[in-house]
Design a protein around this nucleic acid. Structure first.
Length: 206
DNA sequence: GGGACGATCGAT
DNA sequence: TCGATCGTCCCC
């Protein structure tokens, strides 16, 4: 992705991320997926954001830097979530990637997720297990092999980067609504900052 | 130094 | 609907 892609406003970029591809090249191999669902988090006025009220800690530090880097955090003691830092330095905003459609490295993703991909008689894959590879923020990190070691990674170059998607996304394919699992965030819980490809099978919550 | 909690997941 | 599971952060 051209570095100038990261110089747009957070909400604008959230929309434009849909359809682009996230790639991770590791020793185990290459895995990638098309982004089909994201959420924007805009501290310091967004009560749902980790950077709310300009909270600058070891965890949120990277969001205060330049855009186009990886913000990862651990949640519930066992899962990792991947975000793209947006907005200029000292404006701590980020976009959570919530779901991907697998593109490359399906068997590697299945192995990392401990999922056995069954094939039907005609040789095509059964879709129920396929979906569970990457239809959630924790799942996609596991499938791509992302860990806290990727904290702060520059997303314009390997091993972890974004690239333009192979099909274009039209405006009517784009749905918006409130973000997931932020009931604690008072008025911010209603902000329509979740963006996804309407009725796409890999979206985390239809 | 201690304790409460969470931008989730998977089984029930 | 609920339990797992632990690093982070805030408070004492």
């Amino acid at each position: 992705m051209d570095p100038t892609f990261f110089h747009q406003s957070t909400l604008e970029m959230a929309r434009n991320l849909l359809g682009t591809e996230l790639v991770h090249e590791s020793r185990e191999g290459k895995a990638s997926g098309r982004i089909v669902e994201v959420e924007a988090y805009r501290g310091p006025s967004d009560k749902a954001a980790h950077s709310y009220s300009n909270r600058k800690t070891k965890r949120t530090r990277v969001m205060f830097g330049p855009p186009g880097h990886a913000y990862l955090f651990r949640i519930y003691g066992m899962h990792i979530c991947f975000n793209i830092v947006t907005a200029p330095a000292d404006h701590p905003e980020a976009i959570l990637v919530r779901a991907l459609e697998p593109v490359e490295g399906l068997s590697l993703m299945a192995k990392r997720r401990n999922i056995h991909l069954e094939t039907k008689a005609d040789g095509t894959l059964k879709t129920t297990r396929l979906k569970s590879l990457t239809n959630g923020p924790g799942k996609l990190c596991q499938a791509l092999g992302l860990s806290m070691n990727h904290y702060g990674a520059d997303l314009t170059r390997p091993p972890l980067y974004l690239r333009p998607g192979s099909h274009s996304v039209s405006q009517e394919d784009l749905c918006t609504g409130p973000r997931i699992n932020i009931d604690y965030a008072e008025e911010a819980r209603f902000f329509p900052w979740r963006f996804w490809l309407c009725s796409h099978p890999f979206v985390s919550k239809p």
